[in-house]
Amino acid sequence: MAASGQGPTASEYVIHHLTHLNTLGHPQESLVDFSVLHLDTFFFATGLGMLTVWLLYRAARHATSGVPGRFQNFVEMLVELVNEQAKGIIHNPESRKFVAPLALTVFVWIFWMNFMDLLPVDLLPRIWEGIYVAAGGDPHHAYLRVVPTADLNATLGMSIAVLLISLYYNLKIKGVGGWVHELFTAPFGSHPLLYPVNFAMQIIEYIAKTVSHGMRLFGNLYAGELIFILIAMLGGTATVFGFLGHVIAGSIWAIFHILIIVLQAFIFMMLTLVYIGQAHESH
């Protein structure tokens, strides 16, 4: 973005980049509104989810016990990695039938969603602006955010899904009675005076786990995206310093980000396994 005449100011540029394309057509004002949908997040998350399962499905369809190709080998390595982790954390083979594949999907899916951060920050939004304007829209309202995991809705949606699964396994493994008993007697012990304290601790624990699970991924990717935007603004100054700064800082941050996106996907997967694994352990 050139800092010339009719171009946006720095803060306008940043805010434009951080505004979702939603069903309202303008930025959402209220903090919570379940009648609104982020179209961009939904589109990219679902699309990348389909890409993920398509890739995995392709490997699965061609899977034979013969000599594997490179792609199949890679997918099998991922499967082995996730399977080993799942085996180490969840000792119930019946639960693993669902949880291990879920963890694999989560890992690959989140990797792809994080990967969107490595695309040039202006690439897809610019293309979208072109389409939006061509369709007769106002370029100032051509919002698009391409990194679904930099949207709190997506990450919290997934962490709440993990919470639901862990509640389900709590009930399945321990039974209603066993789980209610645990809610009131753990972690401090079985004494009527301790029941409320225990219960409060359990509720706080579940909320903390879920919120931190979603927030961790969101925070990392949101910050990463913001830094890419700021680096892009360096280049946007159209000066030698800005250009060099953009190239150097952009390269360094992108290379570093390769680590972050894989690491965050792995952490999310591991915590998914750990939280569901905790539902299998009685205190």
């Binding site: 979702h20 939603n22 959402q28 209220s30 903090l31 919570v32 509104d33 379940f34 009648s35 609104v36 949908l37 982020h38 997040t41 939904f42 998350a45 679902t46 989810g49 679904p148 949207d151 709190l152 809705n153 997506a154 919290l156 949606g157 997934m158 709440i160 899904a161 639901l164």
Partner: peptide
């Protein structure tokens, strides 16, 4: 902002 995207993501 929190909104229905959360539910959609959960279902997906």
């Amino acid at each position: 902002n929190l909104n229905a995207t959360l539910i959609a993501q959960l279902v997906v």
